[in-house]
Design a protein around this nucleic acid. Structure first.
Ligand SMILES: [Mn+2]
Ligand SMILES: [Mn+2]
Ligand SMILES: [Mn+2]
Ligand SMILES: [Mn+2]
Lengths: 216, 216
DNA sequence: ACAATCAATTAGGTATACCTAATAAAAAAA
DNA sequence: TTTTTTTATTAGGTATACCTAATTGATTGT
């Protein structure tokens, strides 16, 4: 059992994330997400497999129990870092992803505990994603994309599956943030936009954008 | 001009620190401080010299202006991290060095600003060392080691030049922390201990220990 | 003055994590 | 079915940052 490096953490975190969309993750998707060449990823996946952190089948890559456990630790540190950045250091939600992605690898178990304690054990990151607890337990709410709602339906935003700063800024400017209530006034046909009503204002939202917003 | 890595930062920070004791820093001293082999350091110093971050003469290694500037950025981040850890996350002063030594490399200029702002632009780290400002300006107080005081002299602790957790715990248990007033009651001859009076209590302090405590 | 000691470098080697170019295998299109 | 495209891997190579062993150079004690 060897030490785990920041890079291994990064791979596990990416695989964890991509698994939520598409279960066995393809090498190419992983390479794209990590912004690395396919051969680099291919090679590293082999190493992860040899450390029993992933299973590598024809279908793609899946985290093992051990890999999943490690990934959740990294995710916990990432999301706690984000909360530290927003709640204590005054960052906006569109500024935290990259910072947290560096910080997460410099956080010890003790610091993890201290941050959680100082923040009052937050349950989610600023984007609404659940923070796994110390034991890796994660309460995942049942959600669906806003884009699936029908006209006249109302829902509450749970989280935003997006990390592009521009997009997050845009969403925040419309007030589309977790815990906010949204009413879909109408849905344009042929994949057209949704007209949504949020805190008294009315906006047209593209389907693509709406699909990133998860509601309950 | 290439990117600077965490390792380069680490070397610069060490050289900066060691320069305060002994001006041109020897390779061996640097190796000892970084806990690396002499050849590794020899090699890296060559790289630092080729990047014009240090001058390497027969006497030893000195930071160039450019190297000094970079070192002070790292020192600023280190000391701000320490303050974040103690003031916001509730760490004790003996627990912060190693954590800060990892964190400092994961802190962006923006985060540096935010931490400083959130903490009210602190002037020193928890051990009393000055935090360089954004422009690298550093107000260094004129101090001398507590061990140089004569009997009946009184002084105020400015900082503690020590990072060993055990020693810091010990000092804190005696109340020997920055800004505290100390009276030297007597000085035993032949390099013997100092009897000091601090916040109402009387303690015997070894010379070695007392020399780490800088007072004004 | 000369041997012993200490300091620094050279030589040669390892592990990690990335790359491009070439190739093989699988899936999709024609 | 055959061709084209996409996906994944192999082959070969680079940069970084470490190591031990051997060597050279300088300092010091006798
Ligand atoms: Mn990361
Ligand atoms: Mn988040
Ligand atoms: Mn460091
Ligand atoms: Mn300090």
């Amino acid at each position: 059992m060897e030490a785990d490096t920041p890079r291994i953490e990064e791979y596990l975190e990416s695989i964890y994330k991509l698994q939520q969309e598409q279960h066995p993750v393809s090498t190419s998707r992983l390479a794209e997400h990590l912004k690395l060449s396919a051969p680099s990823v291919s090679e590293m996946v082999k190493k992860l497999a040899s450390k029993r952190l992933v299973n590598h089948t024809e279908k793609g890559v899946c985290l093992t129990d051990e890999g999943n456990k490690m990934a959740k630790i990294v995710v916990r540190r990432h999301r706690l870092s984000e909360r530290l950045l927003t709640d204590i250091l005054g960052y906006k939600w569109d500024e935290v992803h990259d910072e947290a992605c560096r910080l997460e690898h410099a956080i010890s178990p003790q610091m993890e505990d201290r941050i959680a304690l100082s923040l009052g054990n937050p349950k989610t990151c600023p984007h609404g994603h659940p923070i796994p607890d110390k034991n890796g337990v994660l309460l995942k709410e049942k959600v669906r994309p806003l884009s699936e709602l029908k006209a006249k339906q109302k829902a509450i935003i749970v989280n935003v599956f997006e990390e592009d700063p521009k997009m997050l800024q845009y969403l925040a400017s419309l007030g589309l943030i977790p815990d906010v209530s949204v009413l879909v006034e109408e849905v344009a046909p042929f994949g057209g936009p949704l007209i949504v009503c949020v805190s008294g204002s009315r906006y047209a939202l593209g389907r693509e954008v709406a699909s990133k917003i998860k509601v309950k």
